[in-house]
């Protein structure tokens, strides 16, 4: 309640056209729309700890995050990928990792799919489980709705375009995906690894398939060996100072771990 009053008073302050605003410390972050919701949440917690700081988060894609950090338009850039060789002039700080796991029903006899098989299933070239040694049953393909970062990572890894994917079900959030797969023994889908691992270990009838021979687990996402994963990076041009340094340290600390998990990403801390 008190916080609300402070906000209200602050808003009125701004409305009155007072120039006090410039006395506030402001931290601007721009870039990846995958990281933006996470950084917004971390930013809110950071603002609560530092009442005179405002964290401003803007999206526009990883490329914008890199460009803005390089040109100094943003204090910190956000990029949902590792830095390229041509970006060696920048510094990257990983705050979490994003991993996507393929899931099938627990009773499905198939225990492994090659990358080529996954591509064939998602483009409608394989339509029956018996082609992969499974039951003689049609495959129900579950895809994600447009705009989700899991979709982006999945398409990117398998070099697919969303226009060629032939899905029977399109889902929104991870839980809906897991319920869909658990409810139909012939489905295949993909969701954030954190959610799938939690549900599978709590008796939900789904199982995670390995990708490229690597078991799908948050541990393998954390240590970087799981291929269907990517780092979520904060990018700066120079060694961060002052506020930017504090913010990056906070985002990488155990204090931010709960926020990371809540957004179905994998924390880098233990």
């Amino acid at each position: 309640m008190k916080r609300l009053w402070i906000r209200l008073a602050f808003t009125l302050f701004l409305l009155a056209g007072c120039s006090e605003d410039s006395a506030q410390d402001k931290l601007v972050l721009t870039g990846s729309s995958t990281i933006a919701p996470l950084v917004s949440e971390i930013g809110k917690r950071f603002e609560a700890l530092h009442p005179d700081v405002r964290v401003d988060v803007q999206t526009g894609g990883s490329s914008r995050g890199i460009a803005d950090a390089r040109q100094g338009l943003a204090d910190i850039g956000m990029a949902s990928r590792a830095l390229k060789e041509s970006e060696g002039d920048l510094l990257a700080f990983t705050i979490a990792r994003d991993g996507v796991g393929l899931i099938v029903h627990k009773d499905n006899p198939v225990i492994e799919l090659s990358d080529a098989q996954v591509v064939a299933i998602y483009t409608g070239k394989i339509v029956n489980w018996k082609d992969m040694g499974g039951n003689d049953a049609p495959i129900t393909v579950v895809n994600k709705a447009e705009g989700r970062s899991t979709l982006e990572l999945f398409l990117d890894y398998f070099k697919l375009k969303n226009t060629v994917v032939k899905a029977q079900v399109i889902i929104g959030d991870n839980e809906q995906g897991i319920k869909t797969v658990a409810g139909n023994p012939n489905t295949i889908g993909y969701v954030s690894i954190g959610t799938a691992e939690y549900d599978a270990s709590h008796g939900v009838a789904v199982k995670l398939l390995p990708v490229d021979g690597v078991a799908a687990s948050t541990e393998n996402v954390r240590n970087g060996s799981f291929p269907l994963s990517r780092p979520l990076n904060l990018v700066t041009k120079t060694e961060p100072q002052g506020l930017a340094k504090d913010f990056i340290a906070f985002a990488r600390s155990t204090a931010a771990e709960a926020i990371v998990k809540k957004q179905y990403f994998v924390p880098i801390t233990h």
Partner: peptide
């Protein structure tokens, strides 16, 4: 099922306009 298509029979998945908004608004 939320697949964007004009259904040929009642067993095919469809997406309604309301579901379209709810599915994609969060990340659009």
């Amino acid at each position: 099922g939320n697949v964007v298509q004009t259904p040929a029979n009642v067993f095919e998945p469809i997406r309604t306009l309301t579901a379209n908004i709810a599915l994609e608004m969060a990340y659009a």
